[in-house]
Nucleic acid binder design. Structure first.
Lengths: 230, 230
DNA sequence: TGTCATGTGTCAGTCCCTGCCATAAATTAC
DNA sequence: GTAATTTATGGCAGGGACTGACACATGACA
């Protein structure tokens, strides 16, 4: 049951204590109004120790979403090889939400509190976007690998950037209405995903073997062959 | 010739001096390795004065792109009313580049130096994205106004977010290859814009008068009427 | 039990950024 | 042209984020 030693469990506990203390203080008095000294005091550790767990004050608030990014990447790698990139990204994201939902309800609550806070605090919002974009590079690499194209190719960049944008807008909208449960969150996400799917041409996210050199004519050719029976 | 008084001109000069000093030092020794004291000394002002011109160290590096955002919004508002949102955004961006190109060559050089720096420095990159997303809200409001829909509507959010994503990816790609002149920059931008246009269904960025309630069937109906002759 | 590795606390210090007050300069009024 | 008013600047003190160095304490392991 307890593979890790006492030492490791203790570390996990103080880490969680710091996150909870921080989230509580941030919610109570705002992000920039609370000092790391306060967080450390609330978690019963020295301020110096705080920085041994989190590099910056931002990190303690963003650690949960960042964990989500890791899961996202892992799930993407687990998608079947034949799946179209955008579809695979969508399913990977659904898997992330599903994994969270299957965890402890206290974890879900913590996650939603963090999301709410990030959405409300500009500094945290920016920090989150930054990490999302660092993750973007890894997602691009994975998509490029799946599609067998160069990581420098435009298409994976475009596909991944578009996907993260859709996800971001979905999350934003979600908090605007209600962030009390994961249900509303997933619903919004599905809505945005559907909107994207509706707006894009079939086969847009795969390299067209017969690249149309240019011109408005010839567009109807794309996606007409090979994609039907995946 | 000189409408503003001596006072105002002096302010503009020290502001520019600060930007140039900062850009020079950042390029020479890196962003986080240079202190605002150094920048202030290089511009012959006190550190305290620096913060009277720029709220943060970030701001001095991001001031030029932020000015661009202002121009972008202005140009968007000047686009003809009938134009489709995504098209209007594209033309507005072209106008921004054009305005820059018509200015002094020294301004262009400064701008490109700032862009290069932002691309290379994660902290600045994140800060820039943050401002872009603050600007997004204003762009959304303008697009919503143009289309006569609520600012809370999904579509303007989606359209603007997608556009800024395309622009961002275009700029990223640009610096990856060459950022020495505006030509390469605009070319990349056009490339990405074209890719987006190719990937999206005609009429995707306008509210469909006959909203399909739901269901996978019925998708083929969209865009089949009215949009051909824009 | 004793040795080793590792997490923690204390301290000093740097840098970013801010409020406050005095001074110097430019603008305006007379 | 001088006086009064506005406004930019500099200096100073201080708070908060973060870091390196050292000493101490606590789990891990033989």
């Amino acid at each position: 049951m307890s593979q890790p030693g006492l030492r490791e469990r203790k570390k996990q506990r103080t880490r969680l204590a710091l996150v909870d203390a921080a989230l509580g203080l941030f919610a109570a008095q705002g992000y920039e109004a609370t000092t790391v000294d306060q967080i450390a005091a609330a978690a019963d550790v020295s301020p110096r120790t705080f920085f041994r767990y989190f590099a910056t004050k931002e990190d303690v608030a963003l650690s949960l979403p960042v964990d989500g990014h890791e899961v996202m990447l892992r799930e993407l790698a687990a998608r079947p090889a034949g799946e179209a990139p955008f579809t695979a990204l969508g399913h990977a994201m659904r898997a992330v939400v599903a994994e969270l939902r299957e965890g402890e309800p206290t974890d879900v609550a913590r996650f939603l509190r963090a999301r709410e806070l990030i959405e409300v605090t500009p500094a945290l919002f920016a920090g989150n976007v930054r990490r999302m974009m660092e993750n973007e590079r890894r997602l691009i690499a994975e998509v490029a690998r799946r599609e067998g194209v160069s990581p420098d190719d435009h298409l994976p960049h475009f596909v991944v950037a578009l996907f993260t944008t859709v996800a971001r807008v979905g999350l934003e909208h979600c908090t605007a209405r209600s962030a009390d449960d994961l249900g509303a969150l997933t619903e919004r996400l599905e809505q945005m995903l559907a909107l994207a799917e509706r707006s894009l041409r079939p086969g847009w996210d795969r390299p067209s073997r017969q690249a149309p050199s240019r011109g408005p004519a010839g567009q109807f050719i794309e996606g007409s062959s090979g994609q039907v029976a995946t």
